[in-house]
Simulated assay, not measured.
Amino acid sequence: MSIAAQVVTFEVEDRETATVELEYAISIETPEIEVITAGEQGPPGINAADISSDPNNRLTFGSDQKLYVSDDLSPDPLNYYILAKG
């Protein structure tokens, strides 16, 4: 049985100083390798949701560009819900 040394190099990025440090790990046995990577939020995509063109559609984009439905529906559906449950 031959023993082969394994050398693994890790690049560790320090975002505050914009430097990359190298860390080394040496093993005299063949290790079980598990790769873990860190990710970030990607760029925003296109708005691919299909929105109905019905005349009473109240779904709009809010000031923060998120979907928003105003609560000024008339008549108030809560009353109908309470009556239906009663």
Rank of each mutant, 00 (worst) to 15 (best):
E29W: 00
S2T: 15
P75I: 02
V8F: 10
E40F: 09
E21I: 06
E32S: 09
E23P: 00
K66V: 15
F61Y: 13
Y68K: 02
A18D: 11
G45M: 15
A5C: 08
D71W: 12
Y24W: 10
G39T: 07
D76L: 09
D76V: 03
M1Y: 09
V69D: 03
T30F: 01
S52V: 02
D50P: 05
E16F: 05
A49R: 15
S2A: 11
I28N: 05
T30M: 04
A18I: 01
P75D: 10
E21R: 15
V35F: 04
S74P: 04
K66S: 14
P44A: 13
L22N: 08
V35G: 04
T60C: 00
G39S: 14
A48S: 13
I26V: 15
E23R: 09
Q41T: 13
T19L: 09
S70V: 03
E34D: 03
A18T: 06
A25H: 01
D50C: 03
E32M: 10
E32R: 06
L73C: 02
I28Y: 01
V7D: 03
P77W: 10
D72H: 05
F61A: 10
S70L: 00
V8H: 04
T60D: 05
E23S: 03
G42F: 11
P55Y: 05
I3N: 11
E34I: 02
D76N: 15
D14F: 01
I36L: 07
L59Y: 07
P31D: 02
V69Y: 08
L78E: 08
S52I: 06
E32Q: 11
G39H: 08
P75R: 03
T19H: 06
E16C: 02
A48T: 13
F61G: 00
Q6N: 09
I82Y: 00
P55T: 09
K85P: 04
M1R: 13
I3H: 05
S70I: 00
D14M: 06
V12L: 11
T19N: 07
D76E: 14
N47P: 08
R58I: 02
E11Y: 14
T30V: 04
E40T: 14
Y24E: 08
V8R: 08
L78K: 05
P44V: 13
D71K: 10
T37C: 04
E21A: 12
I46M: 14
M1K: 04
K66E: 05
V7G: 02
G62E: 12
A4I: 08
S52H: 00
Y24G: 00
A5I: 03
L22V: 12
S63M: 06
L67M: 14
I51P: 01
E23V: 09
E13H: 12
D76Q: 15
Q65E: 15
G86H: 11
S70R: 07
Y68R: 03
T30H: 01
A18N: 11
E21G: 07
G42V: 05
E11W: 14
N56E: 12
E21Q: 12
R58S: 04
G62V: 10
T17I: 12
V12I: 13
N57V: 00
L78R: 13
A18P: 04
D50I: 12
S27L: 00
D64W: 05
Q6S: 05
I51F: 08
S52Y: 02
E32P: 04
I36W: 07
Q41G: 07
L59T: 15
V20G: 03
A18E: 12
D64F: 07
P75L: 06
